[in-house]
Design a binder for these strands. Structure first.
Length: 196
DNA sequence: GCAATGATTTACT
DNA sequence: GTAAATCATTGCC
């Protein structure tokens, strides 16, 4: 299982990275407490469209991490309750990112159940951006952290993913025409994608 | 300084 | 289907 190198995230097209990340492994923790799974749903965001927090190059305290070099995390809180995990892409000062929306839990499932608190069906443990951060134990402390083995990292299983569905992004109606961009990707065969 | 608002989830009618 | 939860960040005064 190959850990993706930083240069993987320096590509200037977050859409192709979002697409390629589906089927990869996301891991957190260490050998005694490892949590992770297969990425089954992503969305791409770019400073060139209104759905992005950094639209038009707008730099704020919240989205600062997006302007960092690719291969870091951008975590922020939404609706006061949920943390959302992004992987920053592109070179420094280019505010592109990929939102991780859902994973298929494969490692540390018991720990994830505990983190969620309530008993939920296995296929809903991480089937949404807010759910997966809670299950994995991600909060604002992860913001602007570089991907690194032993903390948080992404690896290539080498197994080709199943059929990929391309569609529009969720929850960004305010973005006007940009809300129609086909920048959401998920595995057709997976039971672990977010619902709506 | 203060009011408005989400890249959501969950529970209730 | 509708609504509440809940707060850091944002933008306007």
């Amino acid at each position: 299982m190959r850990i993706l190198p930083q240069r993987y995230f320096l590509h200037d097209d977050p859409v192709s990275i979002a697409k390629d990340l589906v089927g990869k492994y996301l891991f957190l923790g260490n050998e005694v407490d490892l949590r992770g799974g297969i990425i089954v749903e992503t969305e791409a965001y770019s400073a060139s469209e209104r759905g992005c927090h950094a639209y038009g190059g707008k730099r704020t305290k919240r989205n600062e991490a997006m302007f960092a070099i690719g291969g870091r995390c951008y975590v922020y809180q939404c609706y006061g309750i949920h943390f959302l995990l992004n992987i920053v892409c592109n070179k420094s000062s280019h505010a592109d990112a990929v939102l991780i929306r859902a994973i298929e839990p494969t490692h540390g499932v018991n720990q994830m159940q505990n983190n969620r608190g309530v008993a939920v069906p296995h296929n809903q443990l991480t089937s949404g951006p807010g759910k997966l951060t809670k299950a994995l134990g991600i909060d604002l402390n992860w913001n602007n952290q570089p991907l690194k083995k032993g903390i948080i990292w992404i690896a290539d299983s080498g197994i080709p993913p199943g059929n990929l569905i391309t569609t529009t992004r969720v929850g960004i109606d305010y973005a006007g025409p940009d809300a129609l961009l086909p920048w959401r990707f998920y595995l057709e065969s997976s039971k672990f994608v977010s619902v709506r």
